[in-house]
Structure formats: structure tokens, C-alpha cells
Design a protein around this nucleic acid. Structure first.
Length: 359
DNA sequence: CAGACGTGGTT
DNA sequence: TAACCAAGTCT
């Protein structure tokens, strides 16, 4: 409950908190991640955006592909956003990809291709919030700035015995103040990386390795036997369930896809036409100048998003072109099966198409 | 401010 | 299985 002053007279602010963390990071922290050992702001920025709400092991192959395809911020700014989405396909939170592209264009046009160093200026760019701005400033420019990500919240909640859900606005405000107050005079890079490394390798959510922790001597949660209770979980509401039927139309060579609106779930990605927009497979095929030859249900698929659960029924439809082929309605497009590997598809849709292709 | 916004891994 | 959530940001 002592949310207001986590650093109180009960546990004095440990002057060696940052010192111990820095020493530990240099000995035991991670030093070989693909975006480390560079001060290339482009790589630092790209990795930080990909790492938002996403684990290191998931990011690594995506980061490698982006660096290979788009080696510089100029290269990224020049390609169409569709190309960015194609390479982001499967990584999730697709607003990150759209913002990534907008941010690259802003950096090129307004900052002459050089990322600004000031965290406040960085945070004004699309997709860069307060914590990501600080991380970029630290790792690319050695600027003394505070991050506050999930790792840091967990480490602080335990070390300073902070009760309540760390994402709650009031608690988050005090955590930011704490983060600012603990910044070291020197070694900001090792300190910042140390917070992340500690949270990712020792001070993990379940069964943390407190015996190996460089901060165990001053950890309030450890002293009070409350390590398993902190940080407190997010208060959850029940997930709503939605249901949809998707049409997988194919003439043998091509598949009918539909580009989703730029905002909302899977924004800007290619998906399968759904029942809401097209009442029946016959109607959909007719609208495209095709006729339905046969129709077969594929196995149902369940997908869980952050805020709802989706039950997908998929109907595989063989179609045949009718002679006078009119214009395809705007969001619809035919894609060869062979082009799907590099298409901007959401993960569950990719799975459906892969399963259908190997039948 | 609360809710939208993905996916895959762990327990 | 279902809950939980990971280098958060935007509206």
C-alpha cells in the first residue's frame, strides 16, 4: 500500500542500487543480441519498436530480415507501406509497422535522415512513446534517460515492495518518478540494459532466481517473502467471443483476398473475405465475375486476441471464371498461391491458407 | 482514462 | 485448457 513513497525511511534509497546493477550487467548481462554493440540509431530504433510487447526470441528473425531488406532509414522510408507490412506479417500489433514507416519518412524529411537525440523529440515521432524514446536515446546516444517497461516495473515492484497493478496510472506515475531518481551518473547504457536483463533472465514472472540477483540484499519483496505476489496481475475482464465465416475462393491458380481497412484489427493487411461483407459464397463469386463450382467446410479455427476471442469458420470454394469479367470491387484482389509466402497476411490467415494449400 | 491493438510461449 | 503476459503506444 505504500505506493506514494516506495523509497521511504523504512528502506533507504540504496546508493549502490545502480552500481550493483551495472557491475552485474557487465559480468552476466546479455551482450550478443543482434541490435547490440552498435550505435546505429536506425538499428536501435528498429529493435526497440519490434521489442514492444514482444519477446526477444520472436524478434530476432524479423530484425535480421528488416536489416537485410531495409539496411537504412532512407531505404525503409522509400518503400511502400505494403512492403513494410509484408515483412512485418506474423509479428502482430500492425500499427507498429505503419508507424514505423511514417516515422522513417519523418526522420528522412524533417531530420535529414538523422534520428534526434532528445528523448522528448523522439517521443513526438510516430510509434515512439516515453519508454522507447528513452531506450533509443540511451543505446544510440548515451543520453541519461529513464525507461519504464514491463521488466523495470517488475524489478521495481519487487525490490521496493510496491503493491497494486503497476500499469494503474497512479502507480505508474510513481514508478516513473522512481525510475528517474535511480539513474546513475555514469554507465547509463549498462544500467538500462541491466534493468532489462535482470527482468528477462533472473527477476522473471514465475520462479525468479533470487539467489543469483545482484540486488537481493535490498529487495523488500524477498525480505518479506512476497516475491510470488509482486507485481500484482492486471485486473481482467472476461474476453468477449466473436464469430465469423470466411470465404476461401480459388480458381486453382489464385486465391481471393481482401485488404482490410487501414485501422482496426489487422489494419492494412490482406485477409479472407468475410460473411459480414459478402452474404454468401455465391454472391461473392458472382460479384467477382465467377461462378461457384463446389464448396467445402474446412476445420474451425479459434484465435485469441488481447481483447476478444474469435471463432473462424472457413469455407473452401472452387470457382470458375465467367466470360465477361467486370471490375473487381475495391478491397478484393486475386493473388497466386505462389505469392502468399511473401504476402502481408495475419498469422491465423496464413495458417488457414497453408493448410488449404497442402490438401 | 480505459480500451484497442497480435502472437507465441509458459504455467 | 485457460490464464497470463512480453523491451508499450495511441486514441
Amino acid at each position: 500500500m505504500s505506493v506514494s513513497s516506495p523509497v521511504s525511511s523504512t528502506i533507504p534509497a540504496d546508493p549502490s542500487f545502480s552500481r550493483r546493477l551495472i557491475d552485474w550487467q557487465r559480468r552476466c548481462g546479455r551482450h550478443q543480441l543482434p541490435w547490440q554493440s552498435t550505435r546505429d540509431a536506425y538499428r536501435v530504433w528498429l529493435s526497440e519498436i519490434m521489442l514492444q510487447q514482444t519477446q526477444v526470441s520472436t524478434v530476432i528473425p524479423y530484425f535480421a530480415r528488416f536489416i537485410e531488406r531495409f539496411p537504412t532509414v532512407d531505404a525503409l522510408a522509400r518503400v511502400p507501406v505494403e512492403s513494410v507490412l509484408e515483412n512485418w506479417s506474423g509479428l502482430g500489433y500492425y500499427a507498429r509497422a505503419r508507424n514505423l514507416h511514417r516515422c522513417a519518412q519523418t526522420v528522412v524529411e524533417r531530420y535529414d535522415g538523422q534520428f534526434p537525440q532528445d528523448p522528448e523529440v523522439l517521443a513526438s515521432l510516430p510509434g515512439i512513446g516515453r519508454s522507447t524514446a528513452a531506450a533509443i536515446a540511451v543505446f544510440a546516444f548515451g543520453v541519461r534517460a529513464a525507461i519504464l517497461d514491463g521488466n523495470v516495473k517488475r524489478v521495481f515492484a519487487r525490490h521496493f515492495g510496491i503493491a497494486g497493478f503497476p500499469g494503474a496510472p497512479a502507480i505508474e506515475r510513481s514508478l516513473w518518478a522512481l525510475a528517474e531518481s535511480l539513474l546513475p551518473g555514469d554507465g547509463i547504457e549498462a544500467y538500462t540494459q541491466g534493468l532489462m536483463d535482470l527482468g528477462a533472465t533472473l527477476c522473471v514472472r514465475s520462479t525468479p532466481d533470487c539467489a543469483a540477483c545482484p540486488l537481493n540484499a535490498s529487495c523488500r519483496a524477498l525480505a518479506q517473502g512476497r516475491v510470488d505476489e509482486l507485481p500484482e496481475a492486471r485486473p481482467r475482464k472476461p474476453l468477449p467471443e466473436r464469430e465469423t465465416t470466411m470465404w476461401l475462393l480459388s480458381d486453382g491458380e489464385n486465391v481471393l483476398l481482401e485488404q482490410r481497412p487501414a485501422t482496426g484489427i489487422w489494419g492494412g493487411l490482406l485477409s479472407l473475405p468475410e460473411q459480414d461483407g459478402w452474404n454468401s459464397a455465391e454472391a461473392l463469386a458472382a460479384r467477382c465475375g465467377y461462378r461457384l463450382v463446389s464448396q467445402q467446410a474446412l476445420p474451425d479455427l479459434r484465435h485469441t486476441f488481447t481483447h476478444f476471442r474469435l471463432l473462424m469458420h472457413v469455407s473452401f470454394c472452387c470457382v470458375e471464371a465467367l466470360p465477361p469479367s467486370g471490375r473487381l470491387p475495391e478491397p478484393l484482389l486475386w493473388r497466386p498461391w505462389s505469392a502468399l509466402a511473401s504476402a502481408a497476411l495475419p498469422a491465423p490467415i496464413r495458417k488457414i491458407l497453408e493448410a488449404a494449400a497442402s490438401r
